[in-house]
Design a protein around this nucleic acid. Structure first.
Lengths: 241, 241
DNA sequence: TACAAGAATATAGTATACTGTTTTCACCCC
DNA sequence: GGGGTGAAAACAGTATACTATATTCTTGTA
């Protein structure tokens, strides 16, 4: 049960202006989730994080609650933890992603500016490098950069936020599936084709390539029936009923 | 600035088992939002609600934060309030709904059971009654019942929760657009055709009818350029960045 | 009367303390 | 050594108190 490190928050002396502590803690945790610093056996406990960050429990608790509401964490009787997603959960997430991402990619061909396109090219180069060196972590990083770039460009912020919410929930998936070299090749080719579609501002091509990309991710996840998780455990469901 | 009433919570004496106070307050507020008890000039203040419910600030505050995270409220310097949605905001919401609801309706033809179908028939009859009597409130109620019924049947809980989240955000829309009798007729016809598709378990018909239904709702909202809201004000965006 | 400066107020945010429940662990009995 | 039993610990949830800031009210002055 490893515990990630937390830096002292409170950037300026006694100044309570600017973003709230809750927001700072939230962003910090979200970044740790994104980078994979938080694993399945991590237990996030508000008092611990609060002590490490030099703040009280409440902002930390509220940040953890927000992450739980968004489906990134689940609240257990012994701290907050990553939800262990059953196959059915992952399938549900992919169903939503397949509905949203193709259209969003089509919109991105309209919304991306030159700077965004440049970042996409850069991310593709990083991915190419990662594939040649065989670095899974770098490929994951390039993949995330690519995704966050085109999503950040979207004018429809609600659509963008919803996609990020679901895509980040499946971040456990990626590390598992990128073990085989041929999968890494497929991912790279997908990124290249997407980048081309974005650069040509070809909405339908972007739509189709994004659907193909997501389908490929889903397929590679479900290829081998993975050892654990065939019995649906407690799911990381959003709890608004 | 009207303030809705809040009943004392705490159903059983000193028993802290069962759903948390935060959850009870959340559900109470969510129901008030659904019923339209909370209007654009309502200001929700945690201490007030807490006093009325006989609890402390924190569960109330956390419930209000959850509603804010989900996009149902915005936090102002003077209490929590309904977001005033610009036309662009409403268009964004409809874009997401158009992507999710048709497919979800198709899935519902698979997921609905006999009891659910019965509730749908009942809701349609209520809608028919409401249209003949001209009661907007009853039509809204029947509409909500219909929607919540088929969405509750969905096996994909994430998809269901996301749809409810977005559909409820636009609940201000309905009351505005149902003023004209011909719109009410159109809504009723849509419900009937959807119910038929569900009963026949015709997935593609349900898909197409739901798309048509949502498109019609969008169109009737944007028909007349409404007086206020043409200048996008502070939006009720979800704040996860 | 208009208007500006300062006081009062209302509210979100944060901190600390308390409570009840679940889990863990040591101890004891068989 | 296995398994039950009770004490202790760990944790989420709740309550109360404090703080900072934005708004509103009041007062004084031109």
């Amino acid at each position: 049960m490893d515990t990630p490190e937390f830096d002292k928050i409170r950037p300026v002396e006694g100044a309570s202006r600017g973003p709230s502590l809750r927001r700072l803690i939230y962003q910090d945790l979200r970044e740790k989730l994104r980078r994979g610093d938080i694993t399945t056996d991590t237990r996030l406990v508000d008092v611990e994080i609060a002590k490490a960050a030099g703040v009280s429990r409440m902002p930390v608790r509220e940040a953890l609650l927000q992450l739980t509401i968004e489906g990134h964490l689940v609240s257990t009787t012994r701290g907050f933890a990553l939800p262990d997603l059953s196959d059915a959960d992952v399938a549900d997430i992919f169903e939503v992603r397949k509905l949203l991402e193709p259209r969003a990619a089509a919109n991105a061909t309209r919304d991306l500016d030159a700077a965004g396109l440049a970042r996409l090219r850069c991310a593709v180069e990083q991915a190419r490098e990662a594939v040649t060196t065989g670095s899974i972590a770098d490929l994951v990083e390039a993949n995330i950069t690519f995704r966050e770039t085109w999503i950040a460009a979207l004018r429809n912020r609600r659509l963008a936020a919803t996609i990020l919410r679901f895509a980040d929930q499946a971040h456990v998936v990626r590390r598992d599936t990128l073990g085989e070299p041929e999968i890494r090749q497929i991912v790279l080719r997908g990124l290249i084709r997407l980048r081309d579609a974005f650069e040509r501002r070809d909405a339908m091509a972007a739509h189709d390539e994004m659907l193909a990309f997501t389908l490929e991710a889903e397929r590679s996840f479900f290829r081998e029936d993975r050892a654990a998780g065939s019995i649906p455990p407690v799911s990381g469901d959003t709890n608004n009923d």
